[in-house]
Amino acid sequence: MEEAVGRPVEEQAEEKPAFTVTDKRFWVRKTAEDTSAPEAKPRSQYPTYVEQLKAQLEEKDRMLREHIERLSNENEAFRKRIEKEQEQLMSLYKGKLIEKLLPVLDNLERALASARETENFTALLEGIQLVYAQFLAQLKSEGVEPITALPRPFDPATDEAIGIEEVDDPSKDNLVLHEIEKGYLIEGRLLRPAKVIVGKRKEEESKAAE
């Protein structure tokens, strides 16, 4: 203190105090912290993580919808192309089949014309038989064959019974007796069943035999 007496007032004012006093009362400290808190920073302009995820999901959903729509259009175009090709193949097949049958029609017309000119029944019959054989040959070339000729056991897989005829002979029971309309197979599959009359043994004789 003695040294400070002789020094100017300005130098004494510049000297720092040897200690500081801090007010630790909580309400005073809280007020000081609030006043000294820095200003809030403005919100960032960049999207948040949730917003980024939402945008990504929306983009994926849009791409998925476009992909599904494109596949649907492609499938529809493919279906139409297949249908058109099938129609063209069917038309081509029909044309080839009819082309094979036209000679049969030509021969039938010749046979009828010859019969009119000569009035010969025998010649007409021979001509029709030739046409019939030619027609069967054309059908066979396409894989079509008639069902086995009579007599044969009744087969519900290939025969359609349109009538029953009682028989005395037990060997004719369930046997095809008459063929009203011939049946045909195509490549081993049934094309048309044969309409037939089936033999059935009389009930009296059947019971007596038992």
Rank of each mutant, 00 (worst) to 15 (best):
Y132H: 15
E51C: 05
T35S: 14
T148W: 12
G95W: 02
V21D: 04
E181L: 06
K80E: 02
L124I: 05
L105H: 15
Q52N: 05
K80M: 04
A133P: 00
Q56C: 02
K24S: 04
A194T: 02
P151L: 10
V50T: 09
A209P: 01
L97A: 12
R25M: 02
T20R: 14
T22M: 07
L101S: 01
A161W: 05
A161D: 00
K140G: 03
A149G: 05
Q138Y: 01
E205S: 10
L125E: 13
E203L: 12
E83W: 05
V21K: 14
H67S: 10
E69L: 00
L108N: 04
A157E: 15
S141P: 02
L64D: 05
P103F: 07
L136I: 08
A123L: 07
P151Y: 03
V28R: 06
A137L: 15
H67L: 12
P146K: 12
S72T: 10
I128E: 00
S36T: 13
L53T: 12
L105E: 12
D23V: 11
D23T: 13
S91D: 08
S72F: 06
K100F: 05
Q12R: 10
F26P: 00
N75Q: 09
A149D: 11
T118M: 06
I186E: 09
S206L: 07
L175M: 13
F135G: 00
I186M: 11
N174P: 01
R7Q: 06
P38L: 14
L64Y: 14
D169Q: 06
R29T: 04
I98M: 12
M90T: 14
L139S: 01
T20Q: 15
T35G: 07
E119H: 10
D34P: 00
E14C: 05
P153I: 08
P146G: 12
D61M: 08
K172L: 10
L190V: 14
D169H: 09
R201A: 00
G183L: 01
E2T: 09
S114P: 02
K24A: 05
F19V: 09
L124M: 06
F19R: 14
E166M: 10
V196G: 02
L101D: 02
G95I: 00
L177S: 03
I162L: 10
E117P: 02
